[in-house]
Design a protein around this nucleic acid. Sequence first.
DNA 1: AGTTCGCTGCGGCGAATTGTCGCACCATCT
DNA 2: AGATGGTGCGACAATTCGCCGCAGCGAACT
Lengths: 177, 177
Amino acid sequence: MTEPMLVIDDDPSFNAILVRTLERRGFAACGARDVQSALDKARELKPGNIILDLNLNGSSGLALIPKLLEIRPDCRIVVLTGYASIATAVDAVKLGAIQYLAKPIEIEAILSAFDEDNDPDFDLPISDEPLSVDRLEWEHIQRVLNENDGNISATARALKMHRRTLQRKLSKRPVKS
Amino acid sequence: MTEPMLVIDDDPSFNAILVRTLERRGFAACGARDVQSALDKARELKPGNIILDLNLNGSSGLALIPKLLEIRPDCRIVVLTGYASIATAVDAVKLGAIQYLAKPIEIEAILSAFDEDNDPDFDLPISDEPLSVDRLEWEHIQRVLNENDGNISATARALKMHRRTLQRKLSKRPVKS
DNA sequence: AGTTCGCTGCGGCGAATTGTCGCACCATCT
DNA sequence: AGATGGTGCGACAATTCGCCGCAGCGAACT
């Protein structure tokens, strides 16, 4: 099960964390932050499992799917995105991705996506509990808040929630699982 | 094309309207309101185009996809649902549906789905807005619910929320962006 | 300077949602 | 038959949300 994994995501910290976590779990993992190096790495490593973010510095990861499959037709691609939509989910799967997940997401869910597809030869840690809805909400808020440079009003607008409500959530919840 | 169309939807009025509209546009259309009659009609007509609602009186239209494809492997199935979620969209496409659309939808969109069931467009999608917290919550619930084979109690436990609350959320939220 | 924006924190209050309990009804399994 | 576990749903109190308004603050423009 030393099938190499390739993480394609333009967010440096997310990418690094994911690669590190995968390695710590015993996978050979490698990261790429843009289309070109993703293709280079893919050609070099011929990874069987690929984690692909849809948004790569503005260019669509969707177009990368056929190219990756061309390099290795049986590779399993899990698409990950912070801006999930049903339309892109449908496209991604039609193009050959085996799963489409919305960030924030736990590693467990990603791994189980690779797992449940087939290949019973490696049983990785049985997936943990999913995040509670509260926790998920918190994670999501933090992400969007970060994206908006801490601007609460803008975040509330993006999240389509009331600013007052966001304020209250932020002040009340240091974090809980 | 006089390829017969089959409309599978348990909502009588929606079904009837859709069939009528299709006929008025020159298609041979036929409706079915439950799993059994859908399969009967499919075997009888061997329709090339099928419009399938995911929720058929509680039973999942998802399971119908493989059976329909078995009857006619090259038929094109467009999945329609009032309770859209990314999880079920991914499943539907993996099972062989060519498109997944959320109600309410215009006939035009359905027809154009059949029309251009090839090459998804990589260029335009990727939205610029993150999901609203409500939407994210909905997606997450759908995923976990799916993971638990539709078991509401188990899902509520996994999500650390009260079963009653989950019930209410599931029944109350048709979808909102 | 003065003025206009937009963001922020916060009080308050009615409306809506949640947490909890309880009950009835079903399947399964023992 | 009894135990177990799921499901739907009514009811009611506790909590949260939506929405109002207000005052302070920094940036940007005239």
